[in-house]
């Protein structure tokens, strides 16, 4: 294990870079696999030089569940925002800012939460203060703050905490 760690410090990153190279080249010939391996090794050693704080994907099942939820929510919020855009003028005036105290502190978890919330139309991550752990966000359809807080905390944050903490 340690020997493997020394040669290949980031096995997942290595596989991802190799896959990206082969997808870009659109071939599976031995030459391209060799080139891709070299590129992926270079990328891994660059990461060693950058020395990011350690992370681990401990719960692949929870990660898959999160991906499924995000997939469903992207559909739902697309429909919701689309109907707001095409609807009457009155429906477009409920937008507003709100704040939320997060229990999640892991940096990778916060990054994923930020991407998820911005990717689903209707919620927009604006600012997170790590000292007070308060997140400010902008919501397009802000009728009930409590409901949005519940969605974010129960649908995403609990799963992210399960994955990263």
């Amino acid at each position: 294990m340690t020997a493997l760690k020394r040669v290949l410090p980031y096995p997942l990153l290595f596989l991802a870079l190799l896959a990206m190279w082969l997808l870009l080249m659109q071939s599976l010939s031995p030459g391209q696999i060799l080139l891709g391996t070299i590129v992926a090794f270079g990328g891994c050693w660059l990461m060693v030089a950058l020395d990011p704080p350690p992370t681990g994907l401990r719960r692949p099942v929870a990660a898959m569940r999160l991906a499924g939820r995000v997939f469903v929510d992207v559909f739902r919020s697309n429909v919701a925002v689309g109907s707001i855009i095409l609807g009457s003028d009155e429906r477009r005036t409920h937008a507003g800012f709100m704040s939320l105290r997060l229990d999640l502190t892991n940096r990778y978890g916060l990054a994923i939460l930020a991407i998820v919330m911005t990717c689903t139309p209707g919620t927009q991550w604006v600012h997170y203060d790590p000292a007070s752990r308060v997140l400010m966000l902008h919501v397009l359809d802000l009728v009930d703050e409590k409901q949005w807080a519940r969605i974010i905390k129960q649908r995403y944050e609990s799963l992210l905490m399960e994955i990263f903490e």
């Binding site: 992207v74 697309n78 925002v81 689309g82 855009i85 477009r92 937008a95 800012f97 911005t118 990717c119 689903t120 139309p121 209707g122 919620t123 927009q124 902008h138 397009l140």
Partner: peptide, 12 residues
Amino acid sequence: YARLHAPSLGAT
């Protein structure tokens, strides 16, 4: 700030 929500429709 409301317009910020619009481009993510096309992007997702």
